[in-house]
């Protein structure tokens, strides 16, 4: 084990996979000369040259579409979106081409493409720059959607993504780039579709992912002082979604709280809650609680933004409600 930041975990995995596989190349806005908005690609232009580290114009529809074409011809492109909000001009390419071309070609082509970048809110970026798009992309068959919360998972999931035969929506979180954590050495991978139990507990299952995992763990610390033992699960993958691990936990705790950053309607938490009801209805001692962002566009003002997104207190209150 070594200690590294989430940012270093991503960068080192890109380097290792680019060294290993000449088919891997990078595209994105300001990833080369500028070294990346969040410096994930620092030094990579110098290391690999402009043919493999492509600075693109501000033209997501064009370069994400082009990356899909590269993948269809056998390359393994990794697209950095400066934030996931900017993927929306390319939604047609991602949803209509990348997700489906294997299917409508009857299996004749693969799209081994990774699109990665920060997802989510929390630093006063207001309505157009604060969205979490996992439910949006998670809706579409043909895509894989992952959202690592720790440096180890950032590394392991990115390596799996880079070796996958499918288009992967790789959701990072800007608030997590600086966090440190232990990372296994070597060729570690984390398989898609495996949730993990981050903290063991007997009284309630708290399901989260990405930045929300850290809020859930903080809430669990606070609740532990009241004698409440939370079992905290990190989904890690949204598609495929590991409902087996969630259900196994809920059957033991009989109570569940599901946390997500984005809007409540048709969200990931709704999906997980429905899955719990389908699998564990008779095991439940209380209705499943959802903790979500408020159903409004993200406001700019600091106080309003704080109200718009989940925090540890809201998670703790939801846990107390399901324990009543």
């Amino acid at each position: 084990m070594t200690e590294m930041t989430y940012r270093e975990a991503l960068r080192s995995t890109l380097v290792e996979e680019m060294d290993r596989d000449p088919r891997v190349l990078l595209l994105g806005e300001d990833i080369g000369v500028y070294q990346g908005t969040f410096r994930i690609t620092e030094g990579l232009l110098e290391r690999y040259g402009p043919k493999r580290v492509i600075d693109t114009p501000i033209s997501e529809l064009g370069f994400i579409g082009a990356a899909i074409g590269m993948a269809m011809l056998g390359l393994r492109p990794v697209v950095e979106v400066m934030t996931w909000n900017f993927s929306l001009p390319a939604a047609d390419q991602i949803l209509q081409n990348a997700a489906k071309v294997r299917y409508f070609s009857g299996g004749q082509v693969s799209v081994p493409l990774v699109i990665r970048g920060p997802n989510g809110a929390g630093v006063q970026l207001s309505a157009q720059h604060s969205q979490s798009l996992e439910s949006f992309y998670g809706h579409f068959p043909g895509l894989r959607v992952v959202a690592p919360a720790t440096p180890a998972d950032a590394r392991g999931l990115l390596r799996t993504a880079l070796r996958s035969e499918d288009p992967v929506i790789f959701l990072e979180h800007a608030a997590l780039y600086g966090i440190k954590g232990p990372v296994p050495e070597g060729d570690d991978t984390v398989p898609f579709g495996q949730a993990t139990v981050v903290r063991r507990g007997r009284h309630v299952t708290v399901v989260a992912y990405s930045r929300m995992l850290h809020l859930a763990l903080a809430a669990a610390d606070e609740l532990a002082r009241e004698g409440v033992e939370c079992e905290v699960l990190d989904l890690r993958s949204l598609r495929p979604l590991d409902m087996d691990t969630v259900a196994e936990s809920v059957r033991r705790t009989h109570r569940a709280v599901v946390v997500q950053e984005q809007w409540p309607l048709f969200g990931a938490a709704a999906e997980v809650a429905a899955g719990i009801y389908e699998r564990c209805f008779d095991d439940l001692d209380a209705p499943v609680e959802r903790v979500t962002g408020e159903d409004v566009p993200a406001p700019y003002a600091r106080n309003l933004e704080k109200l718009a997104f989940p925090d540890e207190d809201r998670i703790a209150r939801a846990v107390r409600r399901v324990l009543q």
């Binding site: 899909i68 074409g69 209509q96 081409n97």
Partner: peptide, 16 residues
């Protein structure tokens, strides 16, 4: 919608 794919495919052919 397929035009960007063709541009990327062309790049791949030279890259290879």
């Amino acid at each position: 919608g397929h035009i960007p794919l063709a541009v990327g495919a062309a790049y791949a052919l030279r890259y290879q």
